[in-house]
Simulated scan of single mutants.
Amino acid sequence: MKMEDRPLVHVARMPIRWGDMDMMGHVNNAMYFTYLETARIDWFTSLGCGPNPAGEGPVLINASCTFIKQLEYPGNIEIRTFIGNFGRTSFETFHQICRVDQPDVICAEGAAKVVWVDFVAGKSTPLTDELKARFAAPLPA
């Protein structure tokens, strides 16, 4: 399934900072993971589901990124988050990173599997139907 065929659930924008670049003059590959993490936390927080060490919250069990086109300072990026399949305690997320001034040019694609965790018990916990509905709610057109 193509990423665009999945529900778009969140869009985050942020600047490319001078310090994000490496000596080769482009954004360091590790920064792409930071951009994706920042977008995911923004999404979770906007849904009232941010990490809560005294309760429940999201934990990544894997993450990937495919680098398609270099990003360079200055500029702003947009990270689009799409929802994937749900399991009993986990769900898939997919991401696109584009420059705001070139929204049709995908610079990177990422993915992460998120497990819902009871932090006090120290183990995964089933996703409720209410949580699944909250995560799967597409952005208004």
Rank of each mutant, 00 (worst) to 15 (best):
K113G: 12
T93P: 00
V59I: 15
L71Y: 05
G75I: 01
E78N: 01
H95P: 01
N85I: 06
I97S: 09
N62D: 15
C49F: 11
N52P: 06
R40V: 03
E72A: 13
H95Q: 15
H95S: 04
S124K: 09
A111Q: 14
H95N: 08
V114L: 08
G50C: 03
R99H: 01
F91K: 03
E109C: 07
W116S: 09
K113P: 00
A54I: 06
A54D: 15
N52V: 04
G87Y: 11
W116V: 05
T45E: 14
G84F: 05
D118G: 11
V59Y: 07
A111V: 01
N52Q: 13
Q70N: 12
F44D: 06
I106R: 06
Q96W: 07
V100K: 00
G57F: 10
W116F: 09
V117H: 05
T81S: 14
I61K: 12
L71R: 09
D42G: 03
P74S: 02
S64A: 14
G87K: 13
E92V: 01
V114W: 05
S46E: 05
C65G: 08
G110P: 09
D101H: 04
P58S: 08
P53T: 09
W43C: 04
R80A: 11
T81E: 00
V120G: 01
Q70K: 13
G50W: 09
D101I: 00
A112R: 06
G87N: 12
P58F: 08
P103M: 02
R80C: 04
G50E: 14
A54C: 06
I79C: 08
S64C: 07
E92F: 06
G110D: 10
A111W: 06
H95L: 02
F94K: 13
F94V: 03
Y73Q: 05
E78L: 00
T81C: 04
I68S: 11
F82W: 10
T93I: 15
I83V: 12
N52G: 06
Q70F: 02
E109A: 04
V120A: 11
N76L: 02
G55Y: 13
F82I: 01
I97E: 08
G84I: 06
V120F: 00
L71S: 06
G75P: 04
G122R: 09
T45Y: 08
F119Y: 15
S90I: 09
E56V: 12
P58V: 05
T66G: 13
